[in-house]
Nucleic acid binder design. Sequence first.
RNA 1: GGCCCCAUCGUCUAGCCCGGUCCAGGACGUCAGGUUCUCAUCCUGAAAACAGGGGUUCGAAUCCCCUUGGGGUCACCA
Length: 570
Amino acid sequence: MSASPVVTRFAPSPTGHLHVGGARSALFCWAYAKNQGGRFMLRIEDTDAARSSDDSARGIMEDLAWLGIEWDDGPVLSLADGRTVGGDARGVGPYFQARRVSLYNRCAEQLVKAGRAYPAFETPEVIDAQRREAVAAKKTYRYPRPEEIEPGRFNDALKARWDRALAGESHVLRFVAPAHEIIVQDRVLGAVKIAAGELDDFVIRKADGFPTYHFAVVVDDETMGVSHVMRAQEHLANTPRHVALQQALGFRTPIYAHMPLIMNMDNSKMSKRDKAKAARAKLQERVSKGLTPAAAAAALELPESEVASFLAKDNDSLAVAERIARVYDVTLPEIEVCDFRAAGYLPEAMCNFLGLLGWNPGMKSPDGKDLEKFDLAFLRQHFSIERIGRTNSKFDRLKLLAFNADAIAALPDAEFAARWRHWCEEFEPALVRAVPTDRWPWLARAVKARARTLRDGAKAAAFALLDDASYTLDQGAVAKHLQSAGGAGLRLLADARARLAAAEPFEPEVLHGVLEQMAQQNGGMGLVAQPIRVAIAGVAVSPPLPESLAVLGKARVLARIDRCIGLAST
RNA sequence: GGCCCCAUCGUCUAGCCCGGUCCAGGACGUCAGGUUCUCAUCCUGAAAACAGGGGUUCGAAUCCCCUUGGGGUCACCA
């Protein structure tokens, strides 16, 4: 008899973008399946009809694909390179839970007929009231099982309830929680025991006919052949419910591995609401400095009432937060995978960093230091559940940034140029338009060491975007590098203009030679470079000059120098 | 609050299972130097942790217990 194949799954609900925590879960599930020669499955848990959307499902799939986490089984997605991921090779689909409702209903009926589930007719309002009462009395609320329900027996009372349900009366289905202790054998945490009586008769099918998460998960993991359930620890408390359900349905219990959580640096939960918090903090700071809400609303082009409610924490609208970020120049924290992509992070850096949050290879690199740089190929080769940690980790963006900087530095120049351009086409198109294609590699080379993110690269390249006839010259820089010492810098600049006008071809190597020669004749590169830099960039900071000059081209360089000399001489 | 999980530098962590080789190693960050045409990169060095208290033991970061602290979860959300 062969060992059952390893099948892991990532099962997001399509109610928004892919969160980094979800990405880490998916990464580990993928890595383990691949390590074991098994299959990684993607299932969309869209049983919350009101909050789910196809756009979200698609966005999550695209984010996973961007990271390089590709699923063997699941919805089909076409990639940019023409390949597709997903499919139903094992014939266990569909992979959207909303399309599996009849399956859940069959299982639910089986439970009812076995006396392990029953229709309940209280309205949500009634249940809420009971719950509030319990909270007010400082007691733990547990749904009180009707006395007429006998565990394991489809008695007359249950039959009567079932008939009412079949007749169309609004109801939910509740599970008859077991009277015995439940033990979850977790591969990360060990044996977790839940005493009998801790579980109450939870809902397995909602009034709208959709299964609850607990029920759908259990039915799907069984019918889809999932062997290993790896998920975040926030699900640990749900697991006894799932085990109880499996036992009642006669299902196998998969192997569980609960991973530690990823938290903010302040130990709060990472959530998309952090964006609203950051924007609100900024706006409040402005308001405390005298900005009136009315003026803010005008600047934001939003109704005053909406701004007021946002400020009052009555809503966490992402749209408002993003508007504030743009108008008041706040950087919203990246929370979702697409945020990191837009911020100019490389997928390999994300996967590497995420792979180290709660797991590590426990290996040394050739230089004897702990090995912590690796790619997806390494991860799938070496991943193991045994090395998953038990403690929550904080998401340190500075370390991620360092990883990203290293990943960029490790890219060959040509590849960086291509990938950076690709990113700019989507997020910084003006730069792509401003620089001729054949000069792009020079720009990329000049910018690479300054780019901890692809967006940094675009910032460093800002000089290329300036309008030759109207860009601002920093007065301090002009005074320091051009006008001081009796205008020595200006005289050098005039000399440089003449030499640059004669430089041919106008390419980095030639320009480097021109500058070197000037440096030798004029007391060092520092004295020569800064005046030219101020002239062409308007400020005393820019990427290396030879490349910068070549990117602009002779005509623009001469125009800028002429304008600068004119402005600085008066 | 009930239940559950966790506990090594500021942060991610190695070491813990199979006690001694650990006055605890690496990385990020920080600080101090150096290289460099600015900025950045790069190089060198430094400071920085076993939460506390009890056990067990010749010996504990490693095993046990308690305290404290942090986290998760208590929906007709997933």
